[in-house]
Design a protein around this nucleic acid. Structure first.
Length: 163
DNA sequence: CCACGGTGGTAGA
DNA sequence: TCTACCACCGTGG
């Protein structure tokens, strides 16, 4: 089930499963058709849409979301899920390196694999993969495009990353 | 600055 | 299985 999420940064597209929010797509003209934009959201989904919208707006304003919708991370492997859960612990304004994440999940040598897991993150922004940097404060990559990573970091107070 | 080797996890064949 | 990717990281020119 899909639903558009309107924010100051554009219209995101959320996808929900039975379990909760399972995907979040960055605003892109091709992703949200006019039809989807105006379509009625099913009543059963409205509470989750509301929570998703509130949480997204909070992050985009540099604040800590008071409440998340349930997150369905079942699309990922065990390894990926442990990486994603670890990222959820990083507060806005803070950053960690890929290496620190690897150590935190007990696989210090799996640094490179952590990068792969970040790239596979189905719920960017809310699962804050943008707060993961390469060693030495270098940006690394970002699945949604580096501009987004820079913008998100700038919102959270890292002026040096502004495009 | 660049090149390289050691890495672990994933997707595809 | 085997293979070829990688949003890494340290070391060494």
């Amino acid at each position: 089930m899909k639903a558009p999420i309107a924010t100051s940064e554009g219209i995101f597209l959320a996808e929900f499963s039975e379990e909760g929010l399972c995907f979040l797509h960055f605003p892109k003209a091709s992703e949200v058709s006019a039809k989807e934009e105006t379509a009625e959201v099913p009543a059963t989904l409205r509470p989750w849409v509301k929570l998703t919208t509130a949480a997204l707006k909070a992050v985009l304003a540099g604040r800590v979301p008071t409440e998340f919708p349930p997150l369905d991370l079942s699309a990922g492997t065990k390894f990926q899920q442990s990486v994603w859960r670890q990222m959820l612990k990083i507060a806005p304004g803070k950053t960690k390196s890929y290496g620190e994440i690897a150590k935190a999940i007990g696989k210090p040598a799996a640094v490179r694999a952590v990068g792969g897991a970040c790239g596979a993150n189905p719920i960017p922004v809310l699962v804050p993969c943008h707060r993961i940097l390469a060693a030495g404060g270098k940006l690394g990559g970002f699945s949604g495009g580096l501009d987004w990573k820079r913008r998100l970091l700038a919102i959270e107070g890292h002026a040096q990353y502004q495009a």
